[in-house]
Design a protein around this nucleic acid. Structure first.
Lengths: 194, 194, 194, 194
DNA sequence: CATGAATGAGTGTTCATTCAT
DNA sequence: GATGAATGAACACTCATTCAT
């Protein structure tokens, strides 16, 4: 289905640019270089097109990316966060997905659910494993971060949302921000500090 | 303008429930208990109504809330975060505003800008002051958190977004989460640790 | 609801001319001299408009027309048939209704049902009464026509259908036809014949 | 053209079920087990397909059926009516044709004309001959039924229309109805009666 | 000020028809 | 001949906006 892929790509751009309601099937078709009716050969209606678009953006083997990184726990945590900045915060597509999910999760509740299962849960599992290993090894002190690995990752999400809202007027120096984030996180996790 | 306030209140509910595009002026009028035409006596068009709604939701004296809290720096930081959970994360109205801002910041870029000025900047200033005082006092170690006070607050934003996306299927235990957040933050900031 | 009546009148013309599917709401609006959207202020959708049109065409007090005609049974029968030719066969509106009912009874089964109750049943009751009286009086011989008064009326329906199908190419001389119909019916009913 | 016949058969079912406008070429193709484009190899467009369908349903040698039935005039009349109930009223295909003709004769006036020539005229001729023979023989009294043989047949048409409109809610006992019809007709035609 | 009937441009969706394979 | 993907005109229906009352 080459056509289907083209339509999904075009639809993603239009939905990302305008949101679900304001997106025009006409624009999707034009963007894909096809006639409006053709869209309906591949997707029954606008809702299914939207859902297909969002589902299609889920990385197929996301868990692989975050699993079994080698190195000392601190390095693993750093590497996970690095990956997150590289693949999530800096990735405009991903930012658009987050925007769409936030905007439309009221209308399409199960889409958020899918992302929870496919992205959030594996991501949290990986981070939790790294933290647990650090504590077992004695490198990290005991803390509730194990229960809420989200807390460790939160600054990356904030950066993402910041870019969504303020990229134009108040862009974030992501490089420096990321380093500060890592330093802050390790500062809280690591047992010994100068 | 009592009437105007009623319209704004009604419009907020409708916009919050459906987003800008899907919101119906008809619903706003019905919600306000007036005729549809009356809305147009107070607002030139839907765009201005929306902007007025969002602007209207900015707390008038927000900076007061976050300024000059008494106590030791650690207590100030904790108090600031507490306030954030109380007034932001747990407040459904605020969650809706964030959702609207994320969803519509593409269409209304200056709205995000307003919130940056009125909310984000004062909030960051307060947090930065508390951190700076802690470092001056020697209670907090030196860190880049001063440059990016967002990092300290980030877990609260994550909690807010989490509630937006997963409140139904995977609600967060906010009380415990907040405590973990504070412990994590102080763990990173404070100089001495057992 | 003056407007509603105008729309119903316009809609009847359009539906009668083209049938349900081929009728265009645009044409209804144009025929009524209003904007398309206005139609939807009075009727939720095309289906309800159609049903309202058809229901609206049912004579309010049809049963009155056919009840208690004075005179000898043969005269009553003749009068009933006369009325049928005047009000049904010769009436273009009624012909259109019959066409619509035949055409769309598959799509709107309850419309036929309504006409059965409101028109067919009262009409048959009147004719049956006249026949019964004739038999009681000894003017009419006993026959199964009592069980099926439709048979007595059938030639009028045939004339109606004939006009629908062949009015242009092979119009019926209704005056003569009606007389032949009456003579034929009385010829079968009346006991004594020269 | 075996293929053409299959398409015509499929198209008849679809047109009969939904009427001209609501019929979908897609459904015709699916019903015929072929691709949609194939329909257009055999018929230039939907209109011609419809016309071909309706024309195709005219019995090739209908006049043969109704001509030169042996027996006494009363028997011939009865036989003609019997045939009509058997082949017309009870035949669902024929009922569908009548419905289509009534519904679409506005759009396709010449189709009614064809049926007039091929079916109505021969049918009326046969009935008229039977009546004329009965009068010549002295079995039937003189009447205008000769001029309007439709009158004799009308109850059968009424039964057909009745089935179209009320088959589900108020079905007709066709057997009894037909006998009443015949009795009524002969009662009017025959010279001598008890 | 307030109303709500009226408007008509705009949108999602359908479907007869075409045509490259 | 046969296919079925592609087209795009057309239609039902919506809704922001206007305005006479």
């Amino acid at each position: 289905m080459h056509r289907q892929g083209e339509i999904l790509a075009a639809a993603f751009e239009v939905f990302a640019a305008h949101g679900y309601e304001a997106a025009r099937i006409d624009d999707v078709a034009r963007q894909a270089g096809i006639a409006k009716g053709t869209v309906y050969l591949y997707f029954r209606d606008k809702q299914r097109l939207f859902q297909a678009v969002v589902r299609n953006l889920i990385p197929k083997r996301f868990d692989v990316l975050v699993k079994s990184l080698p190195g000392r726990p601190a390095e693993v945590v750093t590497a996970l966060l690095s990956q997150m900045y590289l693949n999530v915060v800096r990735n405009e597509r991903v930012r658009s997905i987050v925007r769409l999910l936030v905007a439309e999760s009221g209308r399409f509740p199960h889409l958020a659910e899918i992302y929870h299962q496919e992205i959030v849960v594996p991501g949290m599992r990986a981070m939790r494993q790294a933290l647990a290993r650090g504590m077992e090894d004695g490198e990290f002190r005991e803390s509730d971060a194990l229960q809420f690995p989200q807390i460790v990752v939160a600054p990356a999400l904030l950066a993402l949302v910041w870019q969504l809202l303020f990229a134009d007027s108040h862009p974030l120096d992501l490089e420096t921000y990321m380093k500060a984030h890592m330093e802050f996180v390790l500062g809280s996790l690591e047992r010994v500090r100068a």
